[in-house]
Amino acid sequence: MSTTPPNIDPRAAALFQTDGRLRRRRIVNRLMEALGTIASLAAVAVLVIVVASVVKNGWGAFSVEFFTTSPSLSGFGTAEGGILSSIVGSILLVVIATIFALPIGVLVAIFVSEVAPRKVADVIRLALDVINGLPTIVTGIFIFSVLVLAQGQSAIAGGLALAIIGLPLIARSAQEVLRLVPTSYREAGLALGAPRWRTILGVILPTSLGGILTGTTLAIARVAGETAPLLFTTSLAVTTSVTWDPTQPVQSMPLTMNPITRFSTRNAATTLTSYRSFRPITRAAPTRPNTAPDAPSDGWLGWLNAYETAEPARPDSRYRVR
C-alpha cells in the first residue's frame, strides 16, 4: 500500500508519488492506528494488573483452612479463620436471587418476544433497560425500605435485591435466545394443531433452554460480585458461623472483602454488646440482633453509629502491598 508497485504504467505510478500532503495523511493515519492499538493494550494491561495484584496479595492466605473454616469473632482484625461462612452466605444469596429472577425473567422474555403486541413489548424492553441502569445502591435502599425496615436484615432481603439486578440480565439474554428460535419451529408446532401455549412450552422453550441457562449463568456471575445492594439488606451478620437460614442475615464474599464492612462488622459486634447492656428494659433486647425493634428512629440503625464517629476506617494498614 505504501510502496510503489513494480512494473506499473508510469502515469499510474505518478499517482503513488508521495507528496507532502499524502505523507501527512499517512502519518496521521499511523498515529491514529497506534492510538487505537495502545488503548486496547492499556485495557488488557489494566485487567492483567488487577488480576495479578489480587493473586499476588491473596497468595499468602491461600490454604485449605481458608476455605473450610469461618472467621473467629475474637480474631477480628487478625488473619485468623477462613471464609467458609462467606462462601455459604454468597451461595445462599445467589440461590435465592436465581429462584426469583430466573422464572420471572423467562416469563418476561416470553411475553416480550412471543406474546405481547409490539408497542407493549417496546415499553417493557425499555423498562428492563432502565432497571438494568439503576444504581445498585438504590436497589439496596429500595429493598431496605420495603423489607428490612419492617422485618430486619435477612438473606432473603439480600437475595431479592440481587434478583432485581439479575432480572433484566436474564430477561434480556432469554429474549435474544428466543429470537433465535427459527420461525419454522413455531409454525410446525402450530401446524400440528398445538395451541400457542403448548408450542411455547413444548417447542420453543426446550429449544432455547441451553441459551437461557448460559444467560442465567452470566447473570449469576455478575450478581455474585455485587456489594452495594447487600450493605443495607444483609450486612449485619454478627455471628460468624455458617448459616443456611434465609431469614437471618448472612455473610457474603463481597462484603467480607469490603474494608468498610470488615471494620463495621467488628463494630457491630461491640456495639451490639453495649446496646444490650445500655438499653432500657422497656424495649426488650431483640433476640435477633438484626431485627428492627421499633421505628428506625433509634432502631438498629441507631446502635451502629459506627463508621463515621466511632472509628475512621483505615483499611490500608492491614492490606499493605509488599
Binding site: 450493605l231 468498610i260 451502629l304
Partner: peptide, 9 residues
C-alpha cells in the same frame, strides 16, 4: 454506601 449503618437519627 459509607453510611449504611451510621445513621444516628
Amino acid at each position: 454506601a459509607a453510611q449504611y449503618q451510621g445513621s444516628a437519627s
